[in-house]
Computed example of a mutant assay.
Amino acid sequence: MSAKIYFNPKCGTARNALALLREAGIEPEIIEYLKTPPSRAELAGVAKAMSGGARELLRAKEPLAGELGLHDASDEAILEAIAAHPVLLNRPVVVTAKGAKACRPAEMVKELI
């Protein structure tokens, strides 16, 4: 099974999700999104695979989300903001053939395996 994980190595939840993938025998493509930000088009594709759409990609607790007025923003505005400010990406986001999820808590990754 192929998988991608949008990953921040400083995040314990992201590290736990990665460990769960590896325990399941899956070595995902690891995208350190702060070093290699996804494009707006890539974010749109991931959002389309998520039940919650672009809103699920947004790290709402990030102060910048409030400063930019994203709590009530459209999906388009959210995608634009995350593309411009990757710190706004919820983490970890895991993508497999079964779909995509912001895996908080990390155990949510099991739904994608």
Rank of each mutant, 00 (worst) to 15 (best):
S2Y: 01
S2L: 06
A3T: 15
K4V: 03
K4G: 01
I5M: 11
N8G: 12
N8E: 12
G12I: 11
T13I: 05
T13V: 07
T13A: 02
A14M: 11
A14C: 15
R15N: 08
A17F: 04
A17R: 13
L20A: 04
E23F: 02
E23C: 04
A24S: 11
I30C: 01
I31R: 15
Y33H: 13
Y33D: 06
L34D: 00
L34I: 13
L34F: 01
K35N: 12
K35Y: 01
T36P: 08
S39C: 07
S39K: 09
E42H: 10
L43F: 00
A44S: 12
G45C: 05
G45A: 11
V46T: 09
A47W: 00
A47V: 09
M50H: 06
M50T: 03
M50R: 04
M50W: 01
S51E: 12
G53W: 00
G53E: 04
A54S: 11
A54G: 14
R55Q: 09
E56T: 09
E56R: 06
A60Q: 06
K61G: 05
P63F: 04
L64Q: 12
L64S: 08
A65H: 06
G66M: 08
G66C: 09
G66N: 11
E67D: 07
E67G: 05
L68Q: 11
L70T: 10
H71N: 13
H71Q: 15
E76P: 14
A77Q: 11
I78W: 01
I78N: 00
L79A: 10
L79G: 06
E80M: 04
A81S: 05
I82L: 06
A83L: 10
A83M: 07
A83W: 03
A84M: 04
P86Y: 02
P86G: 09
L88C: 08
L88A: 10
N90G: 14
N90S: 15
V93N: 09
V94R: 08
V95A: 08
V95E: 12
V95T: 14
A97Y: 01
K98P: 07
G99P: 05
A100V: 15
K101F: 00
A102G: 10
P105E: 14
A106Y: 00
V109N: 02
K110G: 02
K110V: 15
E111L: 13
L112F: 03
I113Q: 04
